[in-house]
Each structure stands twice: as structure tokens, then as C-alpha cells.
């Protein structure tokens, strides 16, 4: 018990747990839509595209989140634009665009004099997050979570059956770009907790785990969020006690939970329990 309480007397630990849990929830909710919509690669795309934005924001003296958002969203909009105009398949276009933006970010980081720590952006640094950033991240996470929960049914219809959605005159384009914008915001909020490489896992794994555990969408959201928060907290403790990478520990916990689910999920695991 003491092992759980005592780290909490440190401000940085408390802050890390609160911030990463909030980020964990929003990533998890979004992951449900991404997994169902087969948009997992989009998480990859947005997160890697963010890098040049972070550097340029620093140069311009703006909050990193603004630069990150512009590039994250710009990346996926660019992908959409190119996709409609060439005969290449989605995955090729996605791969080209985000690796190019990521490479631009790397080049900028190495040339622009700044105190940006590349490792922190790539892999997160939640234990060292500043108060200002913590507030920024928290606000984004709460806002996106609120929107996802309020609009979940409309977003679900959009994901499940676009033909019907447009037949009943639901604004399909609006939901398409809304989802992309929320994805970009979520990635922005995640840069400091798990970093832009590992956020990809946070944007896929919780939804995938939950999809193996339930046939109800609302329950899927709940399971994904719980699993993700658990992983975030476990990761923070692991990093406190064993001095390992926080983001790494969080994602590793998620991976282990996925493996267990994959094996033991009652209905959809490989070692099915014959309960039905």
C-alpha cells in the first residue's frame, strides 16, 4: 500500500499520473473509432507529421502545440488531397507523406539552434512536464474527450455506414474532418506524455483490446479507457521504481494486456473458453 501512496507525495509524480491518465483516456476513446474505421495508420501519420511543427513553433516563439496541430492536421489533409488524385493506394501515400514530414522535422531539429530535446518529443517526458504544459495538455484532453463522448453515436454511424449516413443527410465531410482534427489535437496532447512514436500504440492498442472483449460500442469505449488509464498509471510507477522510460513502460503494459486478451478473451481470444 505504501508503495502506491508514497510516490504521490511528489508533485511531479502526481502531475504525471493525472496528465497521462487524461491523455490515456482521450487516446483510448479515439482508438476505438480508429480501429473500427481502419484508420490505425492515420495515427501514425499524424503523430510523425507533428515534428517539424514543434521545431518551427519554437523558432516562431509560439506554443509547441500550435505548430504541432498545424502540421499534424496538415499532414493528413495532404494525404487526403494526394490520395484522391493519384492511382496509388492509401498506405503508400500515407507512408510517403508522414515519413517526409518526419524527416523534415529531424533535419530542422539538427539545424535549428534550440533547447528542444528530440528524445523527449519522440518518447515523451511526462515526469518533467511543466505546469503550463500540463494545463494545456489537460484542457485539450478534456475537450476532446467531451466531444468524442457527446458525438459518439453520430461518429459511430459515420464509421459504420457512410452510405446511410449521407442518405439521411448527415454531414459526412464534417465528421470526417472533425475526426481528423480531434486526432491531431490528441496527438498534440500526447507529445509530452508518451511522445510521438509511442502515441501510435496508445491510439491503437486500447481500442483493439476492447474490440476483442465486447460487442457493445459504449462498453468498448469504457473498456478501452479503463485499460489505457491502468497502463498509464502502471507505467508511471514502473518508471518511478525501476527508473525506466515512462512512455515505454506505459506502452509495454498495453502490449502485455493485448497479448493476454488475444489469448484469453472469452469470445474472441484464440484459447476460447466454451462459454456460449
Amino acid at each position: 500500500m505504501d508503495a502506491i501512496i508514497s510516490p504521490l507525495q511528489y508533485d511531479f509524480m502526481l502531475k504525471a499520473i493525472v496528465v497521462s491518465s487524461l491523455v490515456g483516456v482521450v487516446c483510448a476513446l479515439l482508438s476505438c473509432f480508429l480501429v473500427l474505421k481502419r484508420w490505425s495508420l492515420m495515427g501514425d501519420a499524424v503523430s510523425h507529421s507533428v515534428l517539424p511543427g514543434v521545431v518551427l513553433a519554437y523558432v516562431a516563439g509560439l506554443p509547441y502545440s500550435i505548430g504541432a496541430f498545424i502540421f499534424g492536421l496538415g499532414g493528413v489533409l495532404g494525404i487526403g488531397y494526394i490520395k484522391q488524385r493519384v492511382r496509388l493506394k492509401d498506405d503508400a501515400v500515407i507512408g510517403i507523406v508522414y515519413t517526409t514530414l518526419f524527416a523534415l522535422g529531424l533535419v530542422l531539429v539538427s539545424k535549428v539552434p534550440s533547447n528542444i530535446d528530440l528524445m523527449h518529443i519522440l518518447f515523451g517526458y511526462v515526469l518533467g512536464i511543466s505546469d503550463g504544459d500540463a494545463w494545456q495538455v489537460g484542457l485539450i484532453a478534456v475537450a476532446v474527450t467531451g466531444l468524442l463522448i457527446t458525438l459518439r453515436r453520430s461518429l459511430l454511424l459515420y464509421s459504420f455506414d457512410q452510405a446511410h449516413a449521407s442518405a439521411i443527410r448527415l454531414n459526412v465531410n464534417f465528421y470526417h474532418y472533425l475526426l481528423l482534427a480531434l486526432l491531431a489535437l490528441t496527438v498534440v496532447a500526447s507529445v509530452q506524455t508518451v511522445g510521438i512514436v509511442l502515441v501510435v500504440a496508445m491510439l491503437i492498442t486500447p481500442g483493439a483490446i476492447a474490440h476483442l472483449l465486447t460487442d457493445r460500442f459504449d462498453r468498448m469505449l469504457l473498456i478501452a479507457a479503463s485499460v489505457s488509464v491502468f497502463a498509464c498509471i502502471a507505467g508511471a510507477y514502473a518508471s518511478y521504481y525501476f527508473d525506466v522510460s515512462t512512455g515505454g513502460a506505459m506502452v509495454l503494459v498495453l502490449g502485455i494486456i493485448f497479448l493476454l486478451t488475444f489469448l484469453f478473451a472469452p469470445k474472441y481470444g484464440v484459447l476460447k473458453f466454451k462459454s456460449h
Binding site: L36, R153, S154, L157, F160, I168, L170, R219
Partner: peptide, 23 residues
Amino acid sequence: NFPVSVRDVVMMGRYGFMNILRR
């Protein structure tokens, strides 16, 4: 494989008459 029930899908027929919350 979508996590929607028969009732959920049939309810989507009503979505056009609901507000953005689809309650």
C-alpha cells in the same frame, strides 16, 4: 465485425430525425 447490435443498426434509421446527440 462492428460492435453494433441489431437494435443499434435499426435505430440508425431514426438518426435522421434526431439532433446531433442522436438520443
